[in-house]
């Protein structure tokens, strides 16, 4: 379990993480969601004791990372796949990490095979493609067979095959009962990988809960109905307790699902031309929630926001 309480990090005048509290529970994949620059990597670095919090505290199973004995046996992490010496072979990179945690040399070969790098183990890591570097990073994270795993944007820049591989890997790790904390700026990615979510924007907590909760909370599903007898249908829908709004030559119905609307129309013998559920897109929900918290946005988006404010 990872517990952050009031975690805050200032870099000069920039506030990267602002009074952030959350928990990551055991045996689940928890997504750490936020736009680029929201403070995800900084938070992860503080979890690992690399950066000192300006204030607040983060503990792993009740302990500070710095107080863990041979921490790679407790926490594995992949923060940046490029944190390797380019002139050192993949095997040598893992060998020194293993030595630091008193792990047997055979474990190095095990994890190399596990991530499918056995064949290139003696090649210098500097020549690796991003996908291969990512695999090496995961091998390093798994080296100590840790209960807790941290991944920072693991699918960034990977090809579809690599993304699929990582996704399956996460599920496998969680299925083995490990705690997996994985960050991403893509909600769709998280929806497929995570069970729980910690959502941040501009270093602040926006939401913590399950993925389903987040989606339900963030999106309101409606049904678009088109009919030659729109007015009559509208009256019946209101009578049945649904909410309606005009959408040009259609009605947008909320509070009633498409099956119920179809049955109601059939019972009242109203012809329907279209009956389509409108699931609010996850990305839209994400933008809605974090929109104000995006650190860097395009000029166009900023302009639009400005206009909305004026309106």
């Amino acid at each position: 379990m990872i517990e952050a309480t009031g975690l805050t990090k200032h870099y000069g005048r920039t506030v990267a993480v602002d009074n952030l509290s959350f928990t990551v529970s055991e045996g689940k994949v928890t997504g750490f969601l936020g736009p680029n620059g929201a403070g995800k990597s900084t938070t992860m670095r503080m979890i690992l004791g690399l950066d000192r919090p300006t204030s607040g505290d983060v503990r792993i199973d009740g302990q500070h990372y710095r107080d863990l004995h041979q921490p790679l046996r407790t926490v594995g992490a992949l923060l940046d796949a490029k944190w390797v010496h380019p002139n050192r072979s993949a095997r040598a990179h893992l060998r020194w990490l293993a030595a630091a945690s008193k792990l047997p040399r055979s474990r190095v070969d095990e994890v190399l095979d596990l991530v499918g790098l056995g064949g290139v183990a003696d090649k210098n890591a500097g020549g690796f493609s991003l996908g291969m570097s990512q695999r090496l990073g995961i091998a390093a994270a798994l080296l100590g067979d840790p209960k807790v795993l941290l991944f920072d944007e693991p699918v960034n820049g990977l090809d579809p095959e690599g993304i699929l591989w990582i996704r399956k890997f996460m599920h496998r790790l969680a299925a083995e009962g490990r705690t997996v904390f994985v960050s991403s700026h893509l909600l769709s990615e998280m929806a497929q990988t995570a069970q729980d979510l910690v959502v941040i924007g501009r270093g602040k907590l926006i939401h913590q809960g399950t993925v389903d909760e987040f989606i339900a909370h963030a999106t309101e599903s409606t049904v678009l109905v088109r009919s030659p007898e729109l007015e009559k249908l509208g009256e019946h829908l209101l009578g049945a307790g649904a909410g309606i709004s005009d959408d040009g030559d259609a009605l947008r119905v909320s509070g009633m699902d498409s099956a119920a609307i179809g049955e109601l129309a059939a019972a009242k013998q109203i012809t329907l031309h279209e009956l389509s559920p409108q699931v609010g897109s996850l990305e839209q929900a994400f933008i809605q929630l974090t929109g104000d918290s995006v650190e860097y946005r395009t000029a166009e988006a900023a302009q639009r926001a400005g206009q909305e404010e004026r309106a």
Partner: peptide, 18 residues
């Protein structure tokens, strides 16, 4: 300095926080 240059110092401190 190469540990800082290639950021392996972070991997190092991650493996041994002391």
């Amino acid at each position: 300095t190469t540990e800082y240059r290639f950021a392996t110092i972070r991997a190092t401190f991650q493996a041994v926080p002391k």
